[in-house]
Design a protein around this nucleic acid. Structure first.
Lengths: 146, 146
DNA sequence: GTGATTGCAAATCTTTTGCACTAAA
DNA sequence: TTTAGTGCAAAAGATTTGCAATCAC
């Protein structure tokens, strides 16, 4: 029974993240796999900064440099696994929810929270100016406590 | 006739900016006055970065440091003369239009353009979560050329 | 005068980059 | 192998801060 773990055994918990990377056309390196598991295997949508994800990785015993975290977050964004959300100058957030939706932004502590896309009705949107196409419409509801 | 310019003569073109600063409770120093004139006396709404405003000031013969431009932009924002618009991480834009409105963002060249607040209908907005108040709702329509 | 404001340079913070090394296919 | 990916340290921006000099009142 309890012999050396086969690669199959080892791979099982990695399978979803592995599949995700392969489908996105990204070579599943140890770092990318580990970050993908942290980001996507929790079952809930996440909003992370590079710094925060790096700390989380280190805390989980994953050896990865901050530079690689930055690179990986951008690669994930490029292939549509993540979406970048801009709410504060000087700090980039990455959102695991890539469907059409919007955000609450808690100014107090810099936290982000999803608002389903169909919870807000955007009516009467102006046309894109000549020669342009709408790439995305972002709605941010900024909150102050009180 | 053409004698030494009186302080009254000299002040005339500065009057609007001067009044604006006084009403905002900011001491009208040479730098603040010069920046206020550049920002508000053009008659049209502007979206500037600190760097761009600094260059503009220098080009106009105004002696002011970049640090002071940053400080001044934030002071103006604090007293409601400007509004900060966040559309790109790592670059802050300041908007002379402080009325309720939204923005087109040209991803190609980083340009911003106002959309009057009443041009967009925001329906069915979710309530602010318990213990919070909406401080502002920002809509950004991101444009790509084509 | 006196306290607010400025300039400058240095510090900070976030993010990107160059390059030798390592690992996936 | 062969090429993509990684770590590290350094570079690059953007913004802020400390402090002496300067200015508005």
């Amino acid at each position: 029974m309890s012999k050396e773990p086969t690669s199959q055994n080892q791979d099982r918990p990695f399978a979803p993240a592995l599949r995700r990377l392969r489908e996105a056309g990204l070579r599943p390196t140890r770092q990318r796999l580990a970050l993908a598991r942290l980001l996507f295997d929790g079952g809930c949508d996440r909003h992370v900064t590079a710094e925060a994800l790096h700390e989380e990785a280190i805390a989980n015993g994953v050896k990865v440099s901050l530079a690689t975290v930055y690179n990986t977050l951008h690669q994930f964004t490029d292939v549509g696994l993540l979406r970048e959300v801009v709410v504060e100058s000087g700090r980039a957030y990455f959102d695991t929810n890539v469907t059409d939706h919007h955000h609450f932004f808690y100014e107090e502590d810099g936290r982000l929270e999803d608002i389903p896309g169909d919870r807000i009705t955007l009516g009467n949107l102006p046309d894109a100016p000549r020669g342009n196409a709408v790439s995305r419409v972002d709605v941010v509801i900024r909150l102050k406590s009180g």
